[in-house]
Amino acid sequence: TRVETATETAWISLVTALHLVLGLNAVLGLLLLRWQFPAHYRRLRHALW
């Protein structure tokens, strides 16, 4: 059971790390998009709101 718990903890930390990386990538991607295409982003925002 100790090995199972260790594997579980490893999986949880792995999934958490993946989520963090994906979240960071999403934020960075959005920031890059805003920086690269400000006009396009503004138009998109007007369409959404």
Rank of each mutant, 00 (worst) to 15 (best):
T1S: 10
T1C: 06
T1I: 11
T1H: 05
T1Y: 12
T1L: 11
T1V: 11
R2G: 10
R2N: 15
R2W: 10
V3A: 07
V3P: 03
V3H: 01
V3Q: 02
V3L: 13
E4S: 05
E4Y: 03
E4P: 04
T5R: 03
T5W: 06
T5A: 04
T5Q: 01
T5G: 02
T5P: 11
A6E: 11
A6V: 08
A6P: 04
A6N: 12
A6R: 10
T7N: 08
T7K: 11
T7F: 07
T7S: 11
T7M: 05
T7D: 15
E8R: 12
E8G: 14
E8F: 13
T9L: 10
T9Y: 15
T9S: 10
T9W: 15
T9N: 14
A10M: 11
A10I: 13
A10F: 12
A10H: 13
W11K: 15
W11G: 14
W11N: 08
W11V: 13
I12N: 13
I12G: 15
I12T: 13
I12E: 05
I12Q: 14
I12Y: 08
I12W: 15
S13Y: 09
S13F: 08
S13M: 02
L14R: 12
L14P: 12
L14C: 09
V15C: 13
V15D: 12
V15S: 13
V15Y: 04
V15G: 14
T16Y: 13
A17Y: 10
A17H: 09
A17W: 11
A17G: 11
A17C: 12
L18I: 14
L18T: 10
L18E: 02
L18Q: 06
L18D: 00
L18G: 12
H19S: 15
H19K: 13
H19T: 15
H19D: 06
H19R: 08
L20K: 00
L20H: 09
L20C: 10
V21Q: 00
V21S: 00
V21K: 00
L22I: 09
L22F: 14
L22A: 02
L22N: 02
L22K: 02
G23P: 14
G23S: 09
L24I: 08
L24F: 14
L24Y: 03
L24V: 07
N25A: 15
N25F: 15
N25I: 15
N25P: 07
N25L: 15
N25M: 15
N25T: 15
A26C: 08
A26M: 11
V27M: 11
V27S: 04
V27N: 02
V27C: 07
V27W: 05
L28R: 00
L28P: 01
L28V: 11
L28E: 02
L28G: 14
L28F: 13
L28N: 03
G29W: 13
G29D: 02
G29S: 05
G29I: 10
L30H: 01
L30S: 03
L30N: 01
L30E: 00
L30D: 00
L30F: 12
L30T: 04
L31Y: 05
L31W: 04
L31K: 00
L31F: 09
L31G: 02
L32I: 13
L32A: 04
L32W: 06
L33Y: 09
L33D: 00
L33I: 09
L33F: 13
L33C: 09
R34V: 13
R34A: 12
R34E: 00
R34D: 01
W35T: 06
W35E: 04
W35A: 07
W35Q: 11
W35K: 08
W35Y: 07
W35G: 05
Q36Y: 12
Q36C: 13
Q36L: 07
Q36V: 08
Q36R: 09
F37P: 02
F37V: 03
F37L: 07
F37Q: 02
F37A: 06
F37R: 03
F37Y: 05
F37K: 03
F37C: 12
P38N: 04
P38A: 05
P38T: 05
P38H: 05
P38S: 06
A39H: 10
A39V: 10
A39C: 11
A39P: 04
H40Q: 10
H40S: 09
H40R: 06
Y41I: 07
Y41E: 03
Y41H: 03
Y41T: 04
Y41L: 08
Y41M: 07
R42I: 08
R42C: 07
R42N: 11
R42L: 09
R42T: 11
R43L: 05
R43D: 03
R43M: 05
R43C: 05
R43P: 02
L44W: 06
L44M: 05
L44I: 07
L44R: 01
L44A: 03
R45V: 12
R45Y: 07
R45N: 04
R45M: 14
R45Q: 06
H46F: 07
H46S: 12
H46G: 12
H46N: 13
H46W: 04
H46I: 05
A47D: 06
A47H: 06
A47E: 04
A47C: 11
A47G: 05
L48T: 08
L48V: 10
L48K: 01
L48G: 04
L48D: 01
W49R: 04
W49H: 07
W49E: 02
W49D: 03
W49M: 08
